[in-house]
């Protein structure tokens, strides 16, 4: 059991240990899709839904696994749950909002291999969070992901018009901005107290 308070878990996963900028999770989508603000934010919302739902399902699955003594199946079952949740989200968006579905394209099924999604259930298991703590952690972590995506897409939309040296276009510029954002987020460390 873990007795961290809910507000501490929320602030910790949102700012102190931001999933993208200080734990380095979900980098592929962070670098790949953060070019346009609208797409980035919508994809982050889809990721938020998948993370929260799979966090709850994985919590119960883990209890079953511990009871039956088959913890070695954990990674396999977690990824199956995530794949199922992604499929569900995909079907839901396709039905309710076909234009958004076309806009997100290949990146929607790729949420399955977004490591931020798999990391939430893995972390909550290794830290021994309760159900409520897990949900708060999932919301905080995906909120942190959305925040990082939003900041990054804003910065990149502005960079489009600026005159960068030829060598530093593309991935190099993105990584440098990410580094600067990450420096800024280090300013939060120490918040919440030890």
């Amino acid at each position: 059991m873990n007795n961290e308070s809910l507000s501490f878990i929320l602030i910790d996963s949102l700012l102190l240990h931001n999933f993208v900028l200080s734990v380095f999770l979900g980098m592929c989508s962070f670098i790949g899709i953060s070019g346009k603000r609208a797409t980035a934010v919508r994809l982050s919302l889809a990721v938020t839904f998948v993370i929260t739902m799979s966090s709850i399902l994985c919590y119960f699955t883990n209890r079953l696994l511990v009871q039956s003594g088959t913890e070695y199946l954990r990674i396999i079952l977690y990824i199956v749950i995530i794949a199922a949740m992604v499929q569900l989200t995909e079907m839901f968006i396709k039905k309710t909002n076909p234009s958004l579905f076309r806009q997100l394209g290949i990146f929607l099924p790729l949420i399955t291999t977004n490591c931020a999604v798999l990391a939430v259930p893995l972390f909550q298991t290794s830290r021994g969070y309760s159900l409520l703590q897990s949900v708060v952690f999932a919301v905080g972590a995906s909120g942190g992901y959305t925040l990082a995506m939003y900041l990054m897409s804003e910065a990149r939309e502005r960079l489009e018009l600026s005159d960068l040296p030829d060598l530093s276009r593309g991935a190099v510029a993105t990584l440098t901005i990410a580094g600067i954002l990450s420096l800024a987020f280090m300013g939060f460390s120490g918040m919440g107290g030890e």
């Binding site: 380095f24 580094g179 990450s182 420096l183």
Partner: peptide
């Protein structure tokens, strides 16, 4: 050693 160093 810190996260920003990785990006840079």
């Amino acid at each position: 050693q810190l996260p920003p160093g990785g990006f840079f």
